[in-house]
């Protein structure tokens, strides 16, 4: 990994930049990130993300005062969408931290140590992969009381096996490399070999997968909160906003369409960015090996 110096970063950026779609994706992601960070300053009515009702201005269509219109109790939808980005991003980051935090070490152990432990880990992984992630997440959230943490745990539960399996595959090829064998020959401990020699060299695909998965995790979080298993009202989760707004379709289209658009933009941004990163990192792997 020490070959990732300033020069190689510059080249990577150059290659990334050549793909316009990736740059567009990056732009969308930055937009969502900025919205999340500066939500209290960007939102026209920041108090609307909290516990407040303003019945006098309920069901207003998009206009100069309320760019995204207002919902059933008169809250500004734009403000809620902006604050909703915090929930979505936090969910994505936390879920993937857990998923990768559990999946990567397990995959590493299974791949490098092998033996019974490896076999057990990979069979458990296979079992989890056999269950549709949404069904698994629904089952977990049905058992636990609905909350942000529940949603997070539920999705992470469905997600870690992908990382275990990805890393396991990578380790199988990397552990035959000469530098690994060299490290083993000079007497490095197994832990050192696993975590210092092998792991860093498996990370490129993990990073790409993390980026691509951000979009999917956010989408799944929206699905769960749409089904009423997500965050508690009045927290402005995008899925909940859509679920509450759908009662007033089709006349009050804005209550569903605009939060839906936020999900669309975020998921597409991460997907395009992930695609771009994959191209860049794959090429680098070829060059440096």
């Amino acid at each position: 990994m020490n070959s990732l110096n300033a020069e190689s970063w510059r080249r990577a950026w150059y290659r990334f930049r050549r793909n316009r779609l990736s740059v567009f994706g990056l732009g969308l992601v930055l937009l969502v990130l900025l919205a999340a960070i500066f939500a209290p300053y960007l939102a026209p009515y920041p108090e609307d993300a909290g516990s407040v009702v303003k019945f006098a201005q309920a069901h207003r269509p998009p206009c100069g005062r309320f760019w995204f219109g207002t919902d059933e109790v008169g809250r500004d939808i734009l403000s809620r969408v902006i604050f909703g980005s915090r929930i979505s991003l936090a969910l994505g980051v936390l879920v993937l931290t857990i998923a990768a935090g559990v999946g990567v070490p397990l995959g590493l152990i299974a791949g490098y140590w092998g033996g019974t432990a490896g076999a057990v880990i990979m069979r458990v992984t296979d079992t989890f992969l056999a269950i549709p992630p949404l069904v698994l997440a629904l089952a977990v959230s049905a058992v636990l009381p609905p909350s942000f943490v529940t949603t997070m745990v539920a999705i992470a539960f469905a997600w870690w096996p992908w990382y275990a399996r990805l890393v396991h595959g990578e380790v199988l090829s990397v552990r035959e490399e000469q530098y690994v064998q060299a490290a083993e020959t000079v007497g490095a401990s197994r832990w050192r070999v696993a975590f210092v020699e092998i792991m860093p060299n498996c990370l490129a695909p993990v990073i790409v997968k993390l980026t691509l998965d951000m979009g999917f995790v956010i989408l799944m979080g929206a699905v769960l909160s749409f089904l009423g298993l997500g965050v508690q009202p009045p927290k402005p989760a995008w899925g909940t906003m859509i679920a509450e707004g759908r009662v007033y379709l089709p006349a009050n289209w804005w209550g569903v369409t605009l939060p839906g658009l936020a999900i669309f933009v975020t998921v597409m941004g991460f997907n395009l960015l992930g695609d771009g990163l994959r191209d860049v990192l794959d090429v680098e792997v070829e060059r440096w090996n």
Partner: peptide, 29 residues
């Protein structure tokens, strides 16, 4: 009852004034 929007709105109304009293209320469809 999850399919009755008036009950959700009433929950939000109560929740907002309970918040002023420092009481946290969770709304469960």
């Amino acid at each position: 009852t999850d399919v009755i929007p008036a009950q959700r709105k009433l929950g939000l109304l109560l929740q907002s004034s309970l918040a002023e009293l420092g009481i946290k209320m969770e709304i469960n469809p």
